[in-house]
Design a protein around this nucleic acid. Structure first.
Lengths: 158, 158
DNA sequence: GCTTTAATACTCGGATAAGTCCTGTCCGAGTGATACCGG
DNA sequence: CCGGTATCACTCGGACAGGACTTATCCGAGTATTAAAGC
Protein backbone atom coordinates (compact mmCIF):
# COMPACT_ATOMS: atom_id res chain seq x y z
CA UNK A 1 0.00 0.00 0.00
CA UNK A 2 1.06 3.52 -0.80
CA UNK A 3 2.93 5.21 2.02
CA UNK A 4 1.11 8.46 1.35
CA UNK A 5 -2.00 6.93 2.90
CA UNK A 6 -0.48 7.31 6.35
CA UNK A 7 0.50 10.91 5.68
CA UNK A 8 -2.95 11.71 4.32
CA UNK A 9 -4.72 10.29 7.36
CA UNK A 10 -2.59 12.17 9.87
CA UNK A 11 -2.97 15.35 7.82
CA UNK A 12 -6.74 14.97 7.74
CA UNK A 13 -6.86 14.57 11.52
CA UNK A 14 -4.71 17.67 11.91
CA UNK A 15 -6.93 19.56 9.49
CA UNK A 16 -9.95 18.59 11.55
CA UNK A 17 -8.37 20.55 14.42
CA UNK A 18 -7.53 23.61 12.33
CA UNK A 19 -10.84 25.28 13.19
CA UNK A 20 -11.86 25.72 9.57
CA UNK A 21 -8.84 27.70 8.49
CA UNK A 22 -6.92 26.73 5.38
CA UNK A 23 -3.53 25.15 6.07
CA UNK A 24 -0.78 25.09 3.48
CA UNK A 25 0.98 21.93 2.38
CA UNK A 26 4.22 23.38 3.68
CA UNK A 27 2.94 23.58 7.25
CA UNK A 28 1.32 20.16 7.13
CA UNK A 29 4.64 18.75 5.90
CA UNK A 30 6.67 20.58 8.54
CA UNK A 31 4.57 18.87 11.19
CA UNK A 32 6.30 15.53 10.59
CA UNK A 33 9.33 16.61 8.51
CA UNK A 34 7.78 15.23 5.34
CA UNK A 35 8.84 16.23 1.80
CA UNK A 36 6.54 19.15 1.04
CA UNK A 37 6.08 18.62 -2.70
CA UNK A 38 5.28 14.95 -2.33
CA UNK A 39 2.78 15.51 0.46
CA UNK A 40 1.24 18.18 -1.78
CA UNK A 41 0.73 15.46 -4.37
CA UNK A 42 -1.24 13.36 -1.90
CA UNK A 43 -3.32 16.37 -0.85
CA UNK A 44 -4.12 16.96 -4.53
CA UNK A 45 -5.43 13.41 -4.73
CA UNK A 46 -7.62 14.02 -1.69
CA UNK A 47 -8.89 17.19 -3.36
CA UNK A 48 -9.74 15.37 -6.58
CA UNK A 49 -11.62 12.82 -4.48
CA UNK A 50 -13.70 15.58 -2.89
CA UNK A 51 -12.28 15.07 0.60
CA UNK A 52 -10.43 18.39 0.73
CA UNK A 53 -10.94 21.78 -0.84
CA UNK A 54 -7.96 23.80 -2.00
CA UNK A 55 -7.39 27.53 -2.35
CA UNK A 56 -4.49 28.99 -4.31
CA UNK A 57 -2.45 32.08 -3.61
CA UNK A 58 -1.63 33.81 -0.33
CA UNK A 59 -3.92 32.86 2.52
CA UNK A 60 -4.49 29.70 0.52
CA UNK A 61 -4.15 26.07 1.53
CA UNK A 62 -6.27 23.00 2.21
CA UNK A 63 -9.23 22.32 4.43
CA UNK A 64 -11.68 19.49 4.91
CA UNK A 65 -14.45 19.55 2.33
CA UNK A 66 -17.06 18.09 4.69
CA UNK A 67 -17.69 17.11 8.27
CA UNK A 68 -14.97 14.80 9.64
CA UNK A 69 -17.74 12.46 10.69
CA UNK A 70 -18.44 11.82 7.00
CA UNK A 71 -14.84 11.09 6.00
CA UNK A 72 -14.02 7.44 6.46
CA UNK A 73 -10.59 5.85 6.46
CA UNK A 74 -11.71 3.91 3.38
CA UNK A 75 -12.37 7.18 1.55
CA UNK A 76 -8.74 8.15 2.10
CA UNK A 77 -7.36 4.76 1.12
CA UNK A 78 -9.37 4.81 -2.10
CA UNK A 79 -8.35 8.39 -2.89
CA UNK A 80 -4.62 7.71 -2.47
CA UNK A 81 -4.19 4.05 -3.29
CA UNK A 82 -6.86 3.71 -5.95
CA UNK A 83 -10.16 1.84 -5.99
CA UNK A 84 -8.75 -1.55 -7.07
CA UNK A 85 -8.69 -4.49 -4.69
CA UNK A 86 -5.31 -5.82 -3.62
CA UNK A 87 -6.16 -9.20 -5.12
CA UNK A 88 -7.08 -8.85 -8.79
CA UNK A 89 -8.61 -11.92 -10.35
CA UNK A 90 -6.95 -12.32 -13.77
CA UNK A 91 -9.44 -15.02 -14.73
CA UNK A 92 -6.79 -17.59 -15.47
CA UNK A 93 -9.58 -20.16 -15.58
CA UNK A 94 -10.37 -18.77 -19.02
CA UNK A 95 -7.12 -20.34 -20.20
CA UNK A 96 -7.94 -23.69 -18.63
CA UNK A 97 -9.76 -26.70 -20.09
CA UNK A 98 -13.50 -26.49 -20.41
CA UNK A 99 -13.44 -22.70 -20.13
CA UNK A 100 -16.55 -20.72 -20.96
CA UNK A 101 -15.45 -17.67 -22.91
CA UNK A 102 -18.56 -15.69 -22.00
CA UNK A 103 -18.45 -16.44 -18.26
CA UNK A 104 -17.30 -13.76 -15.81
CA UNK A 105 -14.79 -15.71 -13.76
CA UNK A 106 -14.30 -12.81 -11.36
CA UNK A 107 -17.74 -13.80 -10.05
CA UNK A 108 -17.78 -17.53 -10.81
CA UNK A 109 -14.32 -18.54 -9.57
CA UNK A 110 -14.53 -19.78 -6.00
CA UNK A 111 -11.08 -18.46 -5.13
CA UNK A 112 -11.95 -15.04 -6.47
CA UNK A 113 -15.11 -15.09 -4.38
CA UNK A 114 -13.21 -15.98 -1.21
CA UNK A 115 -10.65 -13.23 -1.75
CA UNK A 116 -13.32 -10.68 -2.56
CA UNK A 117 -15.20 -11.67 0.58
CA UNK A 118 -12.15 -11.12 2.75
CA UNK A 119 -11.42 -7.75 1.19
CA UNK A 120 -15.03 -6.78 1.64
CA UNK A 121 -14.79 -7.24 5.41
CA UNK A 122 -11.57 -5.25 5.34
CA UNK A 123 -13.18 -2.37 3.51
CA UNK A 124 -16.26 -2.50 5.67
CA UNK A 125 -14.06 -2.14 8.73
CA UNK A 126 -12.29 0.87 7.26
CA UNK A 127 -15.55 2.41 6.10
CA UNK A 128 -16.92 2.22 9.64
CA UNK A 129 -14.17 4.45 11.07
CA UNK A 130 -14.25 8.15 10.40
CA UNK A 131 -11.70 10.90 10.90
CA UNK A 132 -13.94 12.18 13.68
CA UNK A 133 -13.73 8.80 15.42
CA UNK A 134 -9.94 8.92 15.24
CA UNK A 135 -9.93 12.48 16.50
CA UNK A 136 -12.21 11.63 19.41
CA UNK A 137 -10.02 8.72 20.43
CA UNK A 138 -6.86 10.82 20.30
CA UNK A 139 -8.54 13.54 22.38
CA UNK A 140 -9.56 10.94 24.94
CA UNK A 141 -5.93 9.83 25.28
CA UNK A 142 -4.34 13.28 24.87
CA UNK A 143 -6.86 16.07 25.51
CA UNK A 144 -4.37 18.80 24.63
CA UNK A 145 -3.67 17.47 21.14
CA UNK A 146 -5.97 19.82 19.19
CA UNK A 147 -4.67 22.92 20.98
CA UNK A 148 -1.09 21.77 20.52
CA UNK A 149 -1.72 21.31 16.82
CA UNK A 150 -3.30 24.74 16.41
CA UNK A 151 -0.43 26.37 18.33
CA UNK A 152 2.14 24.60 16.20
CA UNK A 153 0.41 25.76 13.03
CA UNK A 154 0.41 29.29 14.40
CA UNK A 155 4.10 29.14 15.32
CA UNK A 156 5.00 28.02 11.81
CA UNK A 157 3.52 31.24 10.40
CA UNK A 158 7.05 32.60 9.91
CA UNK B 1 -0.71 -7.85 -4.21
CA UNK B 2 1.53 -10.23 -6.09
CA UNK B 3 -0.16 -11.85 -9.05
CA UNK B 4 1.51 -15.16 -8.25
CA UNK B 5 -0.89 -15.56 -5.33
CA UNK B 6 -3.71 -16.41 -7.72
CA UNK B 7 -1.55 -18.92 -9.59
CA UNK B 8 -0.41 -20.52 -6.35
CA UNK B 9 -3.96 -20.95 -5.06
CA UNK B 10 -5.25 -22.56 -8.24
CA UNK B 11 -2.18 -24.79 -8.39
CA UNK B 12 -2.69 -25.92 -4.80
CA UNK B 13 -6.30 -26.84 -5.53
CA UNK B 14 -5.20 -28.79 -8.59
CA UNK B 15 -2.51 -30.52 -6.55
CA UNK B 16 -5.12 -31.54 -3.99
CA UNK B 17 -6.76 -33.50 -6.82
CA UNK B 18 -3.55 -35.15 -8.01
CA UNK B 19 -4.07 -38.19 -5.75
CA UNK B 20 -0.74 -37.82 -4.01
CA UNK B 21 1.39 -37.97 -7.14
CA UNK B 22 4.05 -35.37 -7.78
CA UNK B 23 3.20 -32.90 -10.55
CA UNK B 24 5.85 -30.92 -12.40
CA UNK B 25 5.83 -27.16 -12.69
CA UNK B 26 5.59 -27.54 -16.44
CA UNK B 27 2.28 -29.38 -16.26
CA UNK B 28 0.86 -27.03 -13.66
CA UNK B 29 1.80 -24.12 -15.92
CA UNK B 30 0.35 -25.75 -19.04
CA UNK B 31 -2.97 -25.96 -17.25
CA UNK B 32 -3.54 -22.21 -17.60
CA UNK B 33 -0.87 -21.27 -20.18
CA UNK B 34 1.29 -19.67 -17.52
CA UNK B 35 5.03 -18.97 -17.91
CA UNK B 36 6.61 -22.13 -16.55
CA UNK B 37 9.74 -20.64 -15.01
CA UNK B 38 7.86 -17.92 -13.20
CA UNK B 39 5.27 -20.29 -11.80
CA UNK B 40 8.17 -22.45 -10.69
CA UNK B 41 9.41 -19.48 -8.71
CA UNK B 42 6.10 -19.25 -6.86
CA UNK B 43 6.09 -22.99 -6.18
CA UNK B 44 9.58 -22.63 -4.72
CA UNK B 45 8.23 -20.03 -2.32
CA UNK B 46 5.44 -22.40 -1.30
CA UNK B 47 8.04 -25.10 -0.73
CA UNK B 48 10.16 -22.83 1.46
CA UNK B 49 7.02 -22.04 3.45
CA UNK B 50 6.43 -25.73 4.07
CA UNK B 51 3.20 -25.86 2.05
CA UNK B 52 4.61 -28.04 -0.74
CA UNK B 53 7.33 -30.66 -0.95
CA UNK B 54 9.53 -30.84 -4.02
CA UNK B 55 11.39 -33.70 -5.65
CA UNK B 56 14.09 -33.18 -8.27
CA UNK B 57 14.90 -35.27 -11.28
CA UNK B 58 12.72 -37.53 -13.43
CA UNK B 59 9.46 -38.54 -11.75
CA UNK B 60 9.96 -35.39 -9.70
CA UNK B 61 7.62 -32.47 -9.13
CA UNK B 62 5.57 -30.86 -6.38
CA UNK B 63 2.92 -32.17 -4.03
CA UNK B 64 1.09 -30.83 -1.02
CA UNK B 65 3.14 -31.15 2.16
CA UNK B 66 0.09 -31.67 4.39
CA UNK B 67 -3.63 -32.23 4.38
CA UNK B 68 -5.46 -29.61 2.27
CA UNK B 69 -7.67 -29.00 5.28
CA UNK B 70 -4.63 -27.55 7.07
CA UNK B 71 -3.60 -25.20 4.28
CA UNK B 72 -5.35 -21.86 4.56
CA UNK B 73 -5.57 -19.14 1.95
CA UNK B 74 -3.66 -16.93 4.37
CA UNK B 75 -0.79 -19.42 4.39
CA UNK B 76 -0.47 -19.01 0.63
CA UNK B 77 -0.74 -15.22 0.70
CA UNK B 78 1.97 -15.02 3.35
CA UNK B 79 4.21 -17.45 1.47
CA UNK B 80 4.01 -15.54 -1.83
CA UNK B 81 3.37 -11.95 -0.83
CA UNK B 82 5.36 -11.88 2.39
CA UNK B 83 4.28 -11.52 6.01
CA UNK B 84 4.11 -7.70 6.06
CA UNK B 85 0.81 -5.90 6.33
CA UNK B 86 -0.28 -3.77 3.40
CA UNK B 87 -0.31 -0.71 5.63
CA UNK B 88 3.07 -0.20 7.29
CA UNK B 89 3.10 2.37 10.07
CA UNK B 90 6.25 4.44 9.55
CA UNK B 91 5.78 6.10 12.94
CA UNK B 92 5.77 9.59 11.53
CA UNK B 93 4.53 10.74 14.92
CA UNK B 94 8.12 10.32 16.10
CA UNK B 95 8.96 13.34 13.92
CA UNK B 96 6.12 15.39 15.34
CA UNK B 97 6.08 17.75 18.33
CA UNK B 98 6.00 16.20 21.76
CA UNK B 99 7.21 12.87 20.43
CA UNK B 100 8.37 10.23 22.85
CA UNK B 101 11.48 8.62 21.36
CA UNK B 102 11.04 5.42 23.34
CA UNK B 103 7.36 4.91 22.51
CA UNK B 104 6.32 2.26 19.98
CA UNK B 105 3.98 4.27 17.78
CA UNK B 106 3.00 1.20 15.80
CA UNK B 107 0.99 0.29 18.91
CA UNK B 108 0.22 3.72 20.35
CA UNK B 109 -0.87 5.57 17.19
CA UNK B 110 -4.65 5.41 16.86
CA UNK B 111 -4.52 5.36 13.08
CA UNK B 112 -2.06 2.48 13.12
CA UNK B 113 -4.37 0.62 15.49
CA UNK B 114 -7.38 1.13 13.23
CA UNK B 115 -5.52 -0.07 10.15
CA UNK B 116 -4.09 -3.06 11.98
CA UNK B 117 -7.56 -3.95 13.21
CA UNK B 118 -8.97 -3.92 9.70
CA UNK B 119 -6.16 -6.05 8.36
CA UNK B 120 -6.63 -8.43 11.24
CA UNK B 121 -10.22 -9.15 10.21
CA UNK B 122 -9.00 -9.58 6.65
CA UNK B 123 -6.39 -12.12 7.66
CA UNK B 124 -8.80 -13.89 9.98
CA UNK B 125 -11.18 -14.34 7.08
CA UNK B 126 -8.46 -15.78 4.87
CA UNK B 127 -7.18 -18.01 7.67
CA UNK B 128 -10.64 -19.52 8.07
CA UNK B 129 -10.75 -20.82 4.49
CA UNK B 130 -8.69 -23.83 3.54
CA UNK B 131 -7.77 -25.37 0.21
CA UNK B 132 -10.07 -28.24 1.13
CA UNK B 133 -12.95 -25.80 1.58
CA UNK B 134 -12.30 -24.37 -1.88
CA UNK B 135 -12.05 -27.84 -3.35
CA UNK B 136 -15.31 -28.94 -1.73
CA UNK B 137 -17.12 -25.89 -3.07
CA UNK B 138 -15.80 -26.42 -6.59
CA UNK B 139 -16.83 -30.09 -6.46
CA UNK B 140 -20.28 -29.06 -5.34
CA UNK B 141 -20.61 -26.81 -8.41
CA UNK B 142 -18.70 -29.02 -10.86
CA UNK B 143 -18.48 -32.62 -9.61
CA UNK B 144 -16.31 -33.72 -12.53
CA UNK B 145 -13.57 -31.18 -11.83
CA UNK B 146 -11.13 -33.49 -9.99
CA UNK B 147 -11.40 -36.22 -12.62
CA UNK B 148 -10.99 -33.69 -15.40
CA UNK B 149 -7.88 -32.34 -13.73
CA UNK B 150 -6.35 -35.79 -13.30
CA UNK B 151 -7.11 -36.67 -16.91
CA UNK B 152 -5.57 -33.47 -18.14
CA UNK B 153 -2.42 -34.11 -16.12
CA UNK B 154 -2.28 -37.62 -17.63
CA UNK B 155 -2.74 -36.32 -21.17
CA UNK B 156 0.12 -33.88 -20.71
CA UNK B 157 2.48 -36.77 -20.03
CA UNK B 158 3.88 -36.38 -23.56
C1' DG C 1 -6.46 61.55 1.31
C1' DC C 2 -8.69 58.19 -1.80
C1' DT C 3 -8.99 55.27 -5.82
C1' DT C 4 -6.97 52.76 -9.40
C1' DT C 5 -3.45 49.97 -11.12
C1' DA C 6 0.59 47.38 -11.67
C1' DA C 7 4.04 44.65 -9.51
C1' DT C 8 4.87 40.97 -6.20
C1' DA C 9 5.13 37.10 -3.32
C1' DC C 10 2.97 33.01 -2.26
C1' DT C 11 0.12 28.84 -3.19
C1' DC C 12 -1.66 24.92 -5.70
C1' DG C 13 -1.28 21.98 -9.96
C1' DG C 14 0.56 19.06 -13.16
C1' DA C 15 4.59 17.52 -15.83
C1' DT C 16 9.15 15.43 -15.26
C1' DA C 17 13.32 12.10 -13.30
C1' DA C 18 15.25 8.48 -9.79
C1' DG C 19 14.59 4.34 -7.11
C1' DT C 20 12.44 0.01 -5.85
C1' DC C 21 9.74 -3.94 -6.41
C1' DC C 22 7.29 -7.10 -9.37
C1' DT C 23 7.49 -9.79 -13.63
C1' DG C 24 9.83 -12.76 -16.64
C1' DT C 25 13.88 -15.59 -18.26
C1' DC C 26 17.97 -18.34 -18.24
C1' DC C 27 21.40 -21.71 -16.96
C1' DG C 28 23.52 -24.86 -13.47
C1' DA C 29 23.21 -28.70 -9.56
C1' DG C 30 21.14 -32.81 -8.48
C1' DT C 31 18.61 -37.15 -9.36
C1' DG C 32 16.40 -41.18 -11.15
C1' DA C 33 15.90 -43.83 -15.24
C1' DT C 34 18.13 -46.06 -19.08
C1' DA C 35 21.14 -48.32 -22.09
C1' DC C 36 25.33 -50.58 -22.58
C1' DC C 37 29.05 -53.62 -21.29
C1' DG C 38 31.17 -57.39 -18.93
C1' DG C 39 30.84 -61.69 -16.57
C1' DC D 1 20.87 -64.31 -18.87
C1' DC D 2 22.15 -61.16 -14.93
C1' DG D 3 24.56 -57.47 -12.47
C1' DG D 4 27.22 -53.29 -12.52
C1' DT D 5 28.32 -48.97 -14.44
C1' DA D 6 28.42 -44.89 -17.02
C1' DT D 7 25.57 -41.93 -19.68
C1' DC D 8 21.62 -39.26 -20.20
C1' DA D 9 17.36 -36.79 -19.90
C1' DC D 10 14.61 -34.41 -16.82
C1' DT D 11 13.51 -31.60 -12.69
C1' DC D 12 14.08 -28.14 -9.19
C1' DG D 13 16.87 -24.15 -7.56
C1' DG D 14 18.83 -19.86 -7.59
C1' DA D 15 21.09 -16.11 -10.25
C1' DC D 16 20.25 -12.66 -13.95
C1' DA D 17 17.60 -8.75 -17.13
C1' DG D 18 13.21 -5.94 -18.34
C1' DG D 19 9.22 -3.31 -17.06
C1' DA D 20 5.81 -1.03 -14.08
C1' DC D 21 4.73 1.39 -10.20
C1' DT D 22 5.95 4.15 -6.24
C1' DT D 23 8.72 7.94 -4.54
C1' DA D 24 10.63 12.40 -5.08
C1' DT D 25 11.38 16.84 -7.37
C1' DC D 26 10.82 20.93 -10.19
C1' DC D 27 8.70 24.70 -12.60
C1' DG D 28 4.51 27.11 -14.34
C1' DA D 29 -0.63 29.07 -13.73
C1' DG D 30 -3.36 31.61 -10.78
C1' DT D 31 -4.55 34.82 -6.89
C1' DA D 32 -4.75 37.96 -2.89
C1' DT D 33 -1.76 41.24 -1.01
C1' DT D 34 0.91 45.33 -1.31
C1' DA D 35 2.84 49.30 -2.80
C1' DA D 36 2.89 53.13 -5.69
C1' DA D 37 1.11 56.45 -8.80
C1' DG D 38 -2.49 59.55 -10.28
C1' DC D 39 -6.54 62.40 -9.27
Amino acid sequence: MNEGVEWAMHSCVNLSWASGEAVTAKRLAAFYNLPTAYLNKQLQALTRAGILTSVSGPKGGFQLARDPRNISLLDIVVAIDGPDDAFRCMEILKEGPGADARADYTKVCVISQAMRGAELTYRRELASRSIADISDEVVRLTPAAPDNTRNRFANLKS
